[in-house]
Design a protein around this nucleic acid. Structure first.
Lengths: 195, 195
DNA sequence: CTCCCATCTTGACAATGTAAACATCCCTGT
DNA sequence: ACAGGGATGTTTACATTGTCAAGATGGGAG
């Protein structure tokens, strides 16, 4: 996946630089990892000058925040689709957890970026909106949608469980054999039964 | 806390530069956060030239790995002390979780560094030893020390729970009110009952 | 007592984030 | 239709960083 424009005609004005930069940033992220995702690299990938991002996204933290926002947005969509297939509340919560971990394992760098708050401009409208939307989806799809104190606590507990497992796996704190969908299924299942 | 040597007499040979650099790195980490923890900043703080760290710790990833190792070591000591006070297996597991979260909230930057694997030289002997020791302590102190498949799974589940909660809190994904020892106590308690 | 070499310093270089000054051109008001 | 104003990119510049190479220093083995 390359995002660079054709070398030939480059109109002085790009047209939609912000979106192009975010797409370029994701390409770099997948190719070179979090360490390689730099402001200049994204500009290169998008085929613009190294200082162009300033007007489009401000600074590096701004670009990363925009990219993280698309991550939250995509995760929300996937979870919504996954939850729609289930009817019982427990099965739905289980499906959400599975979806969360599948996303994390499928796009590890993006997932980690989404939670690297010291590198993100956390106040970006796009980011706060995407995070709020995901939270809303979570709350709506989880059991006890009437939102008692009990339900809130159960949701948080399940979230922490899934998030911790994902983080430990991505940070290579657990043996590699555990990064397997079947194993994860079993672990989440065991936890969900009690929740 | 400053680690810099007196400006006056600086022997050409420091004596124990590695330890001094790690201490300096921690001082910088607490003062300026993860973003400010740079190789040159640590050298400045230790009062040596900017290239001195090369012989002592190799490169930046090496220094961060050494610092992370001390973090794992300290966490292990605290958990061991905490677990020693409890007799029943469930109470012990609960104490471990509480200790884990207290550590994370008390030294957020250090805790996050410990799990930022893309910035650490993960093969460092000091780091692998410290991680292994912590794991061993965990296993020894957790219920079902006879290490059946069931016990292993329960320990992992509890770890993921605590780790996820810590990470979500440090990444500011949860309302700030939740970063309270009493609230955490309740959450972990609710989860531990089922484990 | 004298070299040897581990340890530290100095100097250099490429890459990065960011700022300022300048170029281009879309678009609105007349 | 047609200025020119402001948004959008570019060029240039600078401080900072990680890393490398070459030299200075001195502790300790022979």
């Amino acid at each position: 996946m390359t995002v660079k424009r054709d070398q030939g005609e480059r109109p002085y004005h790009h047209g939609n630089l912000k979106a192009a930069l975010v797409a370029a940033a994701e390409a770099v992220l997948e190719r070179d990892g979090l360490a390689g995702l730099t402001l200049r690299a994204a500009a290169r990938e998008a085929g613009v000058s190294h200082a162009a991002p300033r007007h489009a996204v401000g600074d590096l933290a701004g670009l990363l925040a925009e990219l993280a926002a698309t991550g939250f947005e995509r995760l929300r969509r996937e979870m919504e689709a996954e939850a729609a297939g289930e009817t019982s509340p427990e099965a739905r919560l289980h499906a959400l957890g599975r979806c969360y971990l599948r996303f994390a394992l499928a796009r590890p760098a993006l997932f980690q970026l989404m939670f690297r708050h010291e590198r993100l401009e956390t106040a970006r409208p796009a980011l706060v909106a995407a995070r709020a939307a995901l939270l809303e989806t979570l709350r709506a799809a989880s059991p006890g949608a009437e939102s008692g104190e009990e339900a809130r606590s159960a949701l948080l507990s399940a979230w922490a469980q899934a998030h911790g497992l994902a983080m430990l796996l991505l940070d290579r704190q657990l043996p590699a054999e555990l990064a397997d969908e079947a194993v994860i299924e079993r672990l989440l299942g065991a936890a969900a039964v009690h929740a």
